[in-house]
Simulated assay, not measured.
Amino acid sequence: MPLTNFQKIYQLASIRKGGDDNLEALLTISLPDPQLNKLPEDRFLAEFTRKVFQSGFVWRVVDNKWPAFEEVFWGFDVDKLLMMPDEMLERKATDPRIIRNLKKVWSIRDNAFFIHDVREREGSFAEFIAQWPESDIIGLWSYLKKHGSRLGGNIGPYALRFLGKDTFLLSRDVEAYLREQEVIEGGLTSQRSLKAIQAFFNELQQQSGRSLCELSRLIAFSVGENHVNVEPA
């Protein structure tokens, strides 16, 4: 019987990572919906902010300064940030303890309004995120880009992954695999490409019963230069 796409991916990733046990230990697991439902709004805003500041910057520097970000922005309390006047926001953007980037700092309050608006309409921002179907995760990416601030590109998907929402990521290794297999041909983030990618991952889920997080990692581990004890890009 011919191997499925998933079986081929898994076998190659296993060889590169030194066996099934090593491979399984490296896979990312998403949070179950009941746990994601309970995640406080401030953690969503905090992770959105962290990923906005990490974009185009050294992640380690952002992580080192993160305790100061938490302090300066009141633990990312959404309701407090909604009441912050422009003048205070501008002052906070000059605080030497954080990374001083006014446009990115503005996104903090903008995304506080975004979270607040979803909460007012849906009753809970966490439930809104948790209940969004993974079979249309690209739809959630699009929603974050359209209604949030600076959450387009890889920022929204990476934030979702770190928060525990089940999502695949379009890393360089994943993109290389998708092009090699002719799942996509044109621009990576065109609507045509994204729909083809979503359909491909949906098919892998049906074959394997694995989460999008696991499948994304397995694909990344199956290509490129990542072998035993080497992480993919």
Results as ranks from 00 to 15, higher is better:
residue 178 L to T: 07
residue 154 N to A: 12
residue 88 M to L: 12
residue 201 F to R: 07
residue 167 T to N: 03
residue 69 F to Y: 15
residue 26 L to F: 03
residue 200 F to K: 02
residue 168 F to V: 03
residue 112 A to C: 12
residue 19 G to N: 09
residue 52 V to S: 11
residue 191 Q to M: 01
residue 197 I to G: 00
residue 138 I to F: 04
residue 147 H to V: 03
residue 212 L to M: 03
residue 104 K to D: 07
residue 214 E to F: 05
residue 192 R to P: 00
residue 140 L to K: 00
residue 48 F to P: 09
residue 139 G to C: 06
residue 127 E to W: 13
residue 138 I to N: 06
residue 202 N to C: 12
residue 61 V to Q: 11
residue 181 Q to A: 14
residue 80 K to S: 12
residue 73 F to A: 13
residue 154 N to M: 06
residue 189 T to E: 13
residue 22 N to K: 11
residue 231 E to Y: 07
residue 224 G to H: 13
residue 42 D to V: 07
residue 43 R to E: 13
residue 154 N to E: 09
residue 150 R to M: 09
residue 217 R to C: 10
residue 231 E to H: 06
residue 217 R to S: 10
residue 211 S to Q: 05
residue 158 Y to F: 01
residue 49 T to L: 13
residue 219 I to A: 08
residue 231 E to R: 06
residue 189 T to G: 05
residue 175 E to A: 06
residue 204 L to E: 01
residue 136 D to C: 02
residue 25 A to W: 06
residue 166 D to Q: 07
residue 9 I to Y: 04
residue 30 S to M: 03
residue 128 F to K: 14
residue 48 F to C: 14
residue 132 W to C: 11
residue 225 E to C: 05
residue 6 F to P: 00
residue 24 E to T: 05
residue 155 I to Q: 10
residue 129 I to Q: 13
residue 99 I to F: 04
residue 189 T to K: 13
residue 23 L to W: 08
residue 232 P to G: 10
residue 215 L to W: 03
residue 211 S to V: 01
residue 43 R to Q: 15
residue 148 G to K: 01
residue 62 V to S: 08
residue 21 D to L: 15
residue 75 G to L: 04
residue 185 E to Y: 01
residue 61 V to D: 05
residue 161 R to Y: 03
residue 194 L to Q: 06
residue 51 K to F: 01
residue 178 L to N: 07
residue 151 L to G: 05
residue 138 I to D: 03
residue 171 S to C: 02
residue 43 R to K: 15
residue 233 A to F: 12
residue 32 P to H: 08
residue 83 M to S: 09
residue 132 W to Q: 09
residue 157 P to E: 06
residue 58 V to I: 11
residue 51 K to E: 13
residue 230 V to P: 01
residue 8 K to S: 11
residue 91 R to T: 07
residue 70 E to Q: 12
residue 2 P to H: 09
residue 164 G to S: 08
residue 93 A to W: 15
residue 74 W to S: 15
residue 206 Q to V: 13
residue 50 R to F: 01
residue 21 D to E: 15
residue 133 P to E: 11
residue 157 P to N: 07
residue 176 A to M: 03
residue 182 E to S: 14
residue 120 E to P: 04
residue 140 L to G: 01
residue 203 E to W: 02
residue 213 C to Q: 08
residue 128 F to H: 15
residue 89 L to G: 05
residue 201 F to W: 05
residue 212 L to K: 00
residue 159 A to F: 06
